[in-house]
Simulated scan of single mutants.
Amino acid sequence: MKVQVTAILLFLLGNIVHSQEFKFEKEVINYGKITLGSDGIRTFEFTNIGDAPLIIKEIKSTCGCTVPKKPERPIMPGEKGEISISYDTKRPGGFSKAITIFSNAKQERKLLKLKGFVEKAIQ
């Protein structure tokens, strides 16, 4: 009997702990063709569609040319949030980068992507 009660409590606790969830407007940002040295800041917008506060613990990028900025406070249920990404547009050519978000959501790791092509300025 004790084993059954313990198992039920652990199951319920597991569901409570992971009842936060992201819903992103876009999971890929396509910069398209942009000019060398232009503004490389873009934003991933999302909503917490869960029923508990969503906490973004950390965001890692695949290289130093992509700098993410996470929300500093928890995102409450139903609330919108955003993750800003700054890409170094002083590097000409095509790019395809990813960031990984670590959070307390059901899916603890979430991968988002950026892509585009930085053109040299016409002189």
Rank of each mutant, 00 (worst) to 15 (best):
2 K>T: 10
4 Q>N: 15
5 V>Y: 00
6 T>H: 02
10 L>E: 05
11 F>W: 10
11 F>L: 14
14 G>H: 08
15 N>G: 12
19 S>A: 15
19 S>T: 08
20 Q>Y: 04
21 E>S: 12
25 E>G: 09
26 K>R: 05
27 E>L: 11
27 E>C: 07
28 V>E: 11
29 I>L: 15
30 N>C: 11
32 G>Q: 13
32 G>S: 10
32 G>A: 12
33 K>R: 11
34 I>S: 04
37 G>A: 09
38 S>C: 09
38 S>N: 04
39 D>V: 09
40 G>W: 00
43 T>A: 13
44 F>P: 00
44 F>A: 06
45 E>P: 03
49 I>T: 15
53 P>C: 04
55 I>Y: 04
55 I>M: 10
55 I>K: 06
60 K>I: 08
63 C>H: 11
63 C>I: 06
65 C>T: 06
67 V>Q: 05
70 K>Q: 10
71 P>E: 07
75 I>G: 01
77 P>M: 02
78 G>Y: 02
78 G>H: 05
80 K>N: 15
81 G>M: 04
83 I>V: 14
84 S>A: 10
88 D>M: 09
90 K>T: 10
90 K>C: 14
91 R>E: 07
92 P>V: 06
93 G>F: 00
99 I>R: 00
104 N>E: 06
105 A>G: 00
107 Q>F: 14
108 E>P: 05
112 L>P: 01
117 F>H: 14
120 K>G: 11
120 K>E: 07
121 A>L: 13
121 A>H: 08
122 I>H: 15
122 I>M: 12
123 Q>R: 15
